[in-house]
Structures are given as C-alpha cells and as structure tokens.
Design a protein around this nucleic acid. Structure first.
Length: 209
DNA sequence: CGTATTTGACCCGCGC
DNA sequence: GCGCGGGTCAAATACG
C-alpha cells in the first residue's frame, strides 16, 4: 500500500486551504479505496482472470483555476501493466466545478476533488458509503455516460462522479468531491474493520513486548 | 408504500 | 449573443 500512502501524503500537502480539511479528506479517500479493494477482491476472487491484483497509482494533479485541484490516481494491473494515462483528457475539470454557485458577497470556493482510475468490470465500486444517483450525462468523446452520485447521509454533501473511459473500457474513473461528515456506514466485514482489528492486535503485541 | 433510479429540462460558465 | 458542454433538479418510474 505504498502508493496509497503516497496519495495520502500528496493530498495532505496540497495547497488547497485549509490544510487540515484536506488532510482529513485524503484520509477519507484512503478509507474509500481500502473498502473498494476489499469488496472488489471479494467479489471477483473466484474469477479465473488473474488481473485482480491492483495497484493504486498516483498519476498527477489536475489543477484548474484558483483552488480547484484534482488528485488523479490510477489503479493498474502490475501483471499486464496496461493502464492508460488518459485521465487528464477525459476528466474535464474546467467546467466540472462551474456550477458551484456563489451567493452575493461570497467568494467562489471550489472544493478539492480527488479522482481515481480503477481497473474494474463494474462501474459501482462499493466504498462503504451509501450513494444516491442524481444525474447522468453523456460525455463528449466518450461513448460511456458519466453518473453523478450524492452521499445519502443527511448533512453530508459529498459527491462523486463515475465514468468509464472509452479509450480503455476496463478503466473506471471515479471523482470524489467534498468530505464525509459521518463515519462509514458499513461496519462489518470490510477492510476498515479488518484494519482496525489489525491495529488492535498489533498494539496489543507492542504492549506485550 | 417508501426509497432509489431514470431522464428530460433547465441552469450556468465559457469560448467564439 | 449564441451554442456547447457540464452539472443539477425534479417528476415520473421502478423496485423491494
């Protein structure tokens, strides 16, 4: 999970204020994809294909405008090494946040966005949160539509976009926007649970030593 | 019957 | 100003 740690570090050192919120968001992201990893592998563990050993790779930061930045990561198969780096082309962030309305006297504040490319056969990766779909749009130069989701938790304004790349149909690009204001919903049988148990176990070991 | 999804309309920013 | 593309709304529909 070195790459995941790299993403965490990268995001937490981004210039988008406030740094604390950014750090927490990136931590959320790490949680997200820990879950995605776990569920994905569970779901396809019986698959004869062996390209389920994914790696999450940070492929750059897409910064447009003042404070709108997108951390783009890429989950690749180390066996085939066949990831595409078309995130910059297909992720149009110049207008993605244009709808963030400004009321009178308010300054335009763009939330940081974090995008991940995931090599997956399914569009919807189970990241542990409950999402409600509120829109779908055709994307230019892409035969697959982009889906828009909002976190169903009341008061939590986190959004995500999911789209499959037409350049590489095996790659799903997920863009998160905002920060969850609540704990993850699924509490059992997920990677975070396992991680927690591991931490408890390791700390108890330290205690014994 | 309550909740989630679908989908066309609408809004907004941007480039020409 | 106009058209285009992206993002959101909300009524209709589907689903459990």
């Amino acid at each position: 999970m070195d790459n995941l740690a790299a993403i965490f570090h990268y995001a937490s050192t981004s210039t988008s204020p406030p740094a604390a919120a950014s750090s927490q968001l990136s931590l959320n992201m790490a949680n997200h994809y820990s879950h995605a990893d776990h569920n994905y592998n569970n779901r396809y563990s019986s698959s004869p294909q062996s390209d389920d050993d994914h790696d999450l790779r940070l492929i750059g930061e897409n910064r447009t405008g003042g404070s709108d930045n997108v951390v783009v990561a890429d989950r690749i198969s180390p066996t085939t090494n066949s990831f595409s780096t078309c995130g910059g082309d297909d992720l149009n962030t110049s207008t993605a946040s244009a709808k963030l309305n400004i009321r009178k006297g308010e300054k335009k504040i763009r939330k940081p966005k974090f995008a991940f490319q995931t090599r997956s056969h399914v569009d919807i990766l189970d990241d542990g949160y409950r999402w409600r779909k509120y829109g779908q749009k055709a994307v230019k130069n892409n035969k697959f539509p982009r889906s828009y989701y909002r976190c169903t938790q009341q008061g939590c304004n986190v959004k995500k976009q999911v789209q499959r790349l037409s350049k590489d149909e095996g790659v799903v690009l997920t863009t998160y926007e905002g920060m969850h204001t609540h704990p993850i919903e699924k509490s059992t049988d997920n990677f975070e649970h396992i991680l927690t148990q591991m931490q408890i176990y390791s700390s108890s070991l330290e205690y014994k030593i």
